[in-house]
Design a binder for these strands. Structure first.
Lengths: 210, 210
DNA sequence: CGACAATTTTATATATATTTTAACATCTTT
DNA sequence: AAAGATGTTAAAATATATATAAAATTGTCG
């Protein structure tokens, strides 16, 4: 069915458009042009139209896009029409912050389990969840139909944890550890590297001195 | 001096190479080939060489790269030869987690001040720092020669906070709020959007059902 | 022991593919 | 009919991959 390959950059922007549109909707705005979206998120209008064009015709020439409709379309495209249950591994500072991160909830993500292999953390509570030992992950994955897991553990542990998560039945991993994970082909992995953008800033600032 | 424009993707990868190399060094490995690096971080060997070629010739044909030397070069290129002082705005869960985030310290970043405009948070301690009111930022920026600030506040507040940070003298912002900031040309901004990669995963998982 | 060939690996040039930008024809509304 | 905005095609710019050339090391054989 899917003939055309979609650039990942397009998906990235779609996610950003989608959330921008939700803010417009909350403000009561009903119609929007590609130029409005472009300005709101910092890209070109042509880029917005091109990105949307991969998936269909959602606008009306001479008019623009209906905000509510376009939200529905983008949400559908991103696979967010139905809520997703997630598990988190790592009950440290970062893991705890992500468990309570509002934006995830707003987008339909629900963290149903937090795991750690550190005995001092197991049993503690984060929000309304009790930190559980990793052994209990397979059961939870099955019970809550979890397909995606978040890794917020130290780099050293990340690969082992990933292996365990995959064995537990997960198909996709969001990895906050700054290392490259080795996983089977059927597992999707994306890394969130918290340092990279910071180092892009230092690179640019350092250039100024030249 | 800098004639050639360097792709941002190259800087991104350089940051990743640099940290990968540090891990090799810690293991006692002294020499590395582009292929080793490529495998370690998940790109092609040609890509590694091309990225490095923007900045000079760092390797020896037939041999590879000296790990320690290449670390020095990448660190220098990224502007990390000297440590950087940062300020953080937002003493919520995410801000607190980032203040204690080990990786930042390892790369030479030192958070010297945490600010918030929430009276209930001011005065609290995060690690060894007291949360301060925003009014005290200009002084700290000056005293500690801070050029980069991190924004970890709710989206609604982010633009106002950014304005204040810029007025305080900052030149670069790392923004964790999922909105696009309006800033003067001389200010560098990079966004870290914690939801985007998650939605790339859901997009890909949703595709499988097609 | 020295010369030369084979191997390894970088650096560079070339080609391919992808992504972005720009231009334009088309459709709505006023 | 004019203005505004999309969808689409074409062009330009970027980025990636491939191929080749050059340099250093290792191994081999006379």
């Amino acid at each position: 069915m899917k003939a055309l390959k979609i650039p990942e950059a397009t998906i990235t922007r779609l996610s950003i458009y989608s959330r921008f549109l939700k803010r417009l909707d909350k403000k009561g705005i009903t119609t929007v042009s590609s130029g409005d979206i472009a300005e709101g998120v910092g890209v070109s209008p042509a880029q917005v139209r091109k990105d949307l064009a991969y998936f269909g015709e959602f606008g009306t020439r001479g008019v623009g896009y209906n905000v509510k409709d376009l939200i529905r379309y983008t949400v559908k495209i991103l696979g967010l029409s139905e809520p997703w249950n997630l598990v988190m591994v790592g009950a440290g500072n970062l893991g705890s912050a992500l468990v309570t991160y509002r934006e995830f909830k707003d987008r339909g993500f629900s963290i149903v389990g937090v795991f750690d292999n550190d005995l001092t953390k197991i049993g503690k509570r984060i929000a309304d969840l009790e930190v559980l030992p990793l052994e209990e992950m397979p059961e939870m994955v099955k019970e809550y139909n979890v397909r995606i897991g978040i890794i917020a553990v130290p780099s050293k542990a990340a690969q082992d944890i990933a292996d365990i998560m995959i064995k537990s039945g997960l198909e996709a991993l969001l990895n906050f550890a700054p290392i490259s994970l080795n996983v089977p082909d059927y597992v999707e992995v994306r890394n969130v590297d918290l340092s990279v953008k910071l180092e892009i800033l230092t690179f640019n600032l350092a250039l100024r001195e030249k």
